[in-house]
Nucleic acid binder design. Structure first.
Length: 592
RNA sequence: CGGGGCGUAGCUCAGCCUGGCUAGAGCGCCUGGUUUGGGACCAGGAAGUCGGAGGUUCGAAUCCUCUCGCCCCGACCA
């Protein structure tokens, strides 16, 4: 491709609206262009990267035995009513009415559509296991699109769905997808972590998110540096706190303090001049419509999934002001564990405190000097809060660290949620009918670009990983009006193209500085400069985007040398992927 | 949905507070010339419903009302 003919609208200045590095650089390098909030055009350069990532995904999905199909974005609303998600997806479902009174949905994901296919076409245990996938545009009415292509209303997703006749088939399919995901992200050159995620209906270790650590990530990634434990914030367990501070049960009884209008932990902390970590808050939830409470240290956050499990509830939501008064007799802001009448659980960190400040279950009253276990019961002490930086690891003696991350993939064991709701059944070898057992597996293709740029750039621009770069080699003739220079550039382009590389030739008649700046900006891995100066010496200049220094290679046989360098780099990367695969095999599998 | 910010040329922005000549600059683009290894210079040129509607006024980019869009923080996120 000749740059002079290509639509690569690079920008010298930073677009005013862009904040994230990926947004700024993808725009400046001419890969994307914003149309509206959460809607982007992929210009030729951007599309090339999307295609390369998609191709890697396809190859690995096929290798894992999945079959590609293509489902429509448009689906009848009835399907969504059948599954129950028409009511449950919040506001993100994009709905539209077509002429007449036909009511459609633009698919935010495709469990319903694929389950509809399965109930029609997969009726026998002999057809299973089977995994189907597609790479297709999804639509979600995101309340707040963000960070360029990181969160958009329309995005490319690889979604796969497995159907099995028993749990063993589900586990096999899940493990195959997990391994395929590792291979995909390895090949794409992304620094990712597979973390445990909230497992949903099947329980156990049945969901993983693939995250790329990065400051603009919207998810939290909790990791133990010592043993490799990794989970998202919703899922992360916390180890038991170390030796508790000794309690003095013979200490004077707790004190009643008048705290007019002191409703928040912040206010309480200021009013009594104690640290927020010396206080505790009683949070009331409606667990399957029954009021329950948890006692959490003032500076901590409750984890609703943990609270839900603690009370064995299937649904949980925070109680509103009225429910709280009804349940505790006190207004919000003055709740405490002493003489409370609803079931409550205490977080480990509160149980370990020597004394604590809590609400008095009476307006404008708090108690100080409260001793856990003496002044209120410690029948139910559990892990109930979100993990934080420095918390003990649940698996070893290490401590947890918290980082932000971009979720680029998610694997999930669905079980029979959809097959049951929609009647996707099969007959077993005894002629008995069962619901198919499903798994679903998603990859955000656009997010691969965003994550690659977030983790691969410098002050001058993008540094693409080899495997998904829009072009492999950028050939830069410095004097395009010099016929000799151009002839050599054209020859090099031809040779490298014939050798199977994607070549961009910067034939624009611009000053060298401009061409170098643009080269760094778009981040093509290998840059080859052909100049009058070099030709006199019989050399080409070759520079990797990720390295500082350029090398010279002889003009004679230059194409072969450059092709060799590229092949070597590819081989080195493949070897690295291979090594990681071996490490995974020798390590623990996802389901043990 | 709550809070904050911003809409003026393809991009970055000035002008608005305190209304008044033909609405400006830099970058980019077009023409010509000089330049040529890290975002050159000179001369000339094209390019704008000042987001939109209504109002106030002799007169509105500027003041008022409404509205649309975009960005950030929060809520939300199968």
């Amino acid at each position: 491709m000749r740059w002079s003919q290509a639509l690569i609208p690079t920008l010298k200045e930073t677009p005013a609206d862009a904040v994230a590095a990926s947004h700024i650089l993808l725009t400046r390098a001419g890969l994307i262009r914003q149309l509206g909030a959460g809607a982007y055009t992929y210009l030729p350069l951007g599309l090339r990267v999307l295609r390369k990532a998609s191709q890697i995904i396809r190859e690995e999905m096929d290798r894992a035995g999945a079959q590609e199909l293509l489902m429509p974005a448009l689906s009848p609303v009835e399907l969504w009513k059948e599954s129950g998600r028409h009511a449950n997806m919040g506001g993100i479902l994009m709905e539209l009415k077509l002429s007449g009174d036909r009511h459609y949905v633009l698919g935010p994901t495709h469990e319903e559509v694929v389950t509809d296919i399965a109930r029609d076409l997969i009726n026998s245990y002999k057809q299973m296991p089977i995994t189907l996938y597609q790479i297709q545009t999804k639509f979600r009415d995101e309340p707040r699109p963000r960070f360029g292509i990181l969160r958009t209303r329309e995005f490319l997703m690889k979604d796969a769905y497995s159907f099995g006749s028993d749990l063993a088939q589900l586990n096999t399919a899940y493990d195959a997808m997990y391994e395929a995901y590792c291979r995909i992200f390895d090949r794409c050159g992304l620094p990712y972590a597979a973390v445990e995620a909230e497992s949903g209906p099947i329980g156990g270790d049945s969901s993983h998110e693939f995250m790329v650590p990065c400051s603009v990530g919207e998810d939290s990634l909790i990791q133990c540096g010592a043993c490799g434990y990794a989970a998202n914030r919703e899922r992360a367990e916390i180890g038991k706190p170390g030796q508790a501070v000794p309690q003095d049960h013979s200490a004077p009884a707790h004190q009643k303090v008048h705290t007019p209008g002191v409703r928040t932990i912040e206010e309480l902390s200021k009013f009594l001049k104690v640290k927020t970590s010396a206080t505790a808050k009683l949070l009331v939830f409606m667990a399957d419509d029954k009021a329950v409470a948890v006692l959490i240290r003032g500076d901590h956050e409750a984890n609703e999934a943990k609270v839900r499990r603690a009370f064995g509830a299937s649904t949980l939501e925070p109680a509103d002001a009225q429910q709280i008064i009804k349940a505790t007799g006190a207004p919000i802001g003055f709740l405490g564990p002493i003489a409370i009448k609803i079931p409550f659980a205490v977080d480990h960190s509160v149980a370990a405190m020597a004394t604590v400040v809590v609400g008095g279950n009476e307006e404008d009253v708090h108690f100080t000097g409260v001793i856990p276990g003496r002044d209120f019961a410690l029948d139910r002490v559990l892990d109930l809060r979100n993990a934080e930086q420095g918390d003990p690891c649940p698996r070893c003696a290490g401590t947890l660290s918290v980082a932000q991350g971009i979720e680029i993939g998610h694997v999930f064991k669905l079980g029979t949620k959809y097959s049951k709701a929609m009647g996707a059944n099969f007959l077993d070898d005894q002629g008995q009918s069962h619901n198919s057992i499903m798994g679903c597996y998603g990859i955000g293709v656009n997010r691969i670009l965003a994550a690659a740029v977030e983790t691969g750039h410098d002050d001058n621009g993008i540094i693409w990983p080899l495997a998904i770069a829009p072009y492999d080699v950028l050939v830069v003739p410095l004097q395009v009006t010099n016929a000799l220079v151009m002839a050599d550039a054209a020859l090099l382009e031809e040779r490298l193209t014939d050798a199977g590389f994607d070549v961009l030739l910067d034939d624009r008649d611009l000053r060298p500085g401009v061409k170098f700046k643009d080269a760094d900006l778009i981040g093509v891995p290998l840059r080859v400069v052909i100049s009058e100066r070099g030709l006199k010496e019989g050399t080409l200049e070759v520079k990797w985007r990720h390295e500082k220094e350029a090398k010279t290679v002889p003009l004679q046989g230059g194409a072969d040398a450059i092709a060799g360098m590229m092949r070597e780099a590819r081989a080195a990367h493949a070897a690295k992927c291979e090594t990681r695969q071996v490490i995974r095999k020798s390590g623990h599998s996802s389901t043990n």
